[in-house]
Every structure is written in structure tokens, then in C-alpha cells.
Design a binder for these strands. Structure first.
Length: 273
DNA sequence: CGGCAAACCTGCGAGC
DNA sequence: TGCTCGCAGGTTTGCC
């Protein structure tokens, strides 16, 4: 499901409704995700107050009053749903159930089990292995045209693969890589070092598409839901993603689909050079 | 180290 | 209706 805008949408929803909540009981119904949940996770969470929910790259960070941090990645299909009370039954992919002291229930569901949950200490967050190789946040100043230009110069592979590389910039996945390159008028097959001279346009395009997607509550292709169950709206505003064979919204020519690094790339051969 | 394919796992839509 | 195939928002691993 989630790239940066979807994770940020979930974060906003969690923050608005769970800040200050106390976790009373946690049941792990299934722990064997691609990366298994740590043993003792439930006990470490029980009785804790949620102080704040942050985000780094595509990871959610639940800051707890014990100085522990619950790190969550939604993988491809992970979602959080907030229920007003304990549901009469759970689905086969409801892996973790957080019962709050006020009676509400937060359910983590992940059909494909590519998600991840782990615990660390707040003091160790900055040096946590999960974040060791992660590049700058695209909406922060650190992701500058100068930075991007220098990073791209070292690369031989295509620009689209480069901007999806989390070590270069955090949070951009397959949808927003295609969309950003369309906005920047750059052919996704362009070798990264040749695209370095367009770094300014590319930084602006990445920021523009991510901000617009966040403003629309993310994109829902199949799985993604807000914690309230609502879908995102940004999928209606895609220029190229998922529109292979359809007409380019700018020039009306057909949108091309190719494979890059095992992922589908959508672009307009006329508008993107 | 760079680049790429495959693997992880389940569900869904398309096509037969 | 039901089967098979291909594909899906991500990340890691292993192989050249």
C-alpha cells in the first residue's frame, strides 16, 4: 500500500486520535510476518501511554512514556483500523490488536505480511539499523538540488530506479516516482548521471507530488485505508501511474508501460525526454 | 560497490 | 463457475 503520503496520512490520523491514549492490552494473533515481531512486544506495550506518533521514511514511530519506541512499517498491504469497541470477531489478517484503556481498539491488519513491527529505545532511534542507510526526507531542506545532483552523478542506472532508492531519498515508491518524473518532464530511462542537471526540477516535482498526495489523503489502489476506513483520493489525480495505453493528460498520446528493476513504470514518450 | 532478479506472501482481476 | 496466470503501494538477499 504505502509510500510516504499514505504513511503520513496514517500518521496524521493516529496522532489526532491516539495521542495520550493508554494501551491496556495487546494481543498478537500472528507474529510470523516477513520480519517476525519481537518476543515480549505485547508485554512491553501494555500499560504504556502514547505520547506522540512520528514518521521517518515509510516507518511510523509510536513514542511511548516508557522511552520505548514502537517502529511500524506497513509493507505493501499493512493497515491500521480504529474500532470504537472490541469487534465480535477478527479477520484472518488481523495480526495485532491493541485494546486501549478508553475501550477503543486499534487493529493492525496485513494480508501479505510484508509489514514489520519492532521496539527500540528513544535514545537509540537515531542509530537504529533500520534507519542507518536511509536518505533525507524529501520534504526537508536537506533534500536539496545540490544534494540530489551530487548523488545522481555517481549513478549509472536509470533515474526512476534512483529516486525509488531509499538510501538516496526516503519515502518515494513506485507510484510517486512515475508521477514525479512526469511532472519534471524526465524520461524514466534516462541514466541518473545524465539527469543530474535536472536536479532542481526533480526536487520540485517530488515535493509537489508528495504534498499534493498528502493533501488528498494518499492514494488507494486496493488496500490502503485511513484508520477510519476511508480511502485516499489521489489515485484520481494520477497523470501516468496505472494509465498504460490511455491518453496523456497533457498531449493526448498513449502512455507507455515498461519494466524497470522488476517494477512497472508509466510515462509519456512525448512529454518526457 | 552497482545493478538486477528473485524472494518473501496473499488476493484479485483478466482471460480462457 | 472455476482454474491459471500475472500483477500489486516494499524491502532484503544473493548473485554477477
Amino acid at each position: 500500500m504505502p509510500e510516504l503520503p499514505e504513511v503520513e496520512t496514517v500518521r496524521t490520523g493516529l496522532e489526532a486520535t491516539l495521542k495520550g491514549a493508554i494501551i491496556e492490552r495487546v494481543s498478537v494473533r500472528r507474529a510470523d510476518l516477513r520480519v517476525p515481531f519481537p518476543r515480549g512486544m505485547a508485554q512491553a506495550l501494555e500499560g504504556r501511554k502514547i505520547l506522540h506518533i512520528g514518521r521517518r521514511a515509510k516507518y511510523l514511530l509510536f513514542m511511548l512514556d516508557s522511552q520505548d519506541v514502537l517502529i511500524v512499517h506497513l509493507g505493501m498491504s499493512g493497515r491500521f483500523l480504529l474500532e470504537e469497541k472490541l469487534p465480535p470477531h477478527f479477520g484472518k489478517h488481523d495480526h495485532v490488536v491493541f485494546q486501549l484503556k478508553d475501550g477503543r481498539v486499534l487493529v493492525f491488519n496485513d494480508a501479505r505480511r510484508f509489514g514489520l513491527m519492532t521496539l527500540t529505545k528513544k535514545s537509540k532511534l537515531a542509530i537504529h539499523p533500520l534507519f542507518a542507510g536511509i536518505g533525507p526526507e524529501p520534504l526537508e531542506q536537506e533534500f536539496s538540488p545540490e544534494y540530489l545532483s551530487e548523488a545522481l552523478k555517481k549513478r549509472k542506472g536509470p533515474i526512476k530506479t534512483a529516486i525509488m532508492d531509499q538510501s538516496l531519498v526516503a519515502g518515494v515508491g513506485n507510484i510517486y516516482a512515475s508521477e514525479a518524473l512526469f511532472l519534471a518532464h524526465i524520461d524514466p530511462r534516462t541514466p541518473a548521471h545524465k539527469a543530474a542537471k535536472h536536479a532542481e526540477k526533480l526536487v520540485a516535482a517530488v515535493r509537489q507530488v508528495l504534498k499534493a498526495a498528502i493533501a488528498s489523503g494518499g492514494s488507494t489502489l486496493r488496500d490502503f485505508l485511513h484508520i477510519t476506513g476511508y480511502k485516499g483520493d489521489f489515485q484520481h489525480l494520477f497523470h501516468v501511474y496505472g494509465r498504460g495505453g490511455k491518453s496523456c493528460p497533457v498531449c493526448d498520446k498513449n502512455i507507455a508501460v515498461i519494466r524497470q528493476g522488476g517494477r512497472s513504470t508509466f510515462f509519456c514518450k512525448t512529454c518526457q525526454k
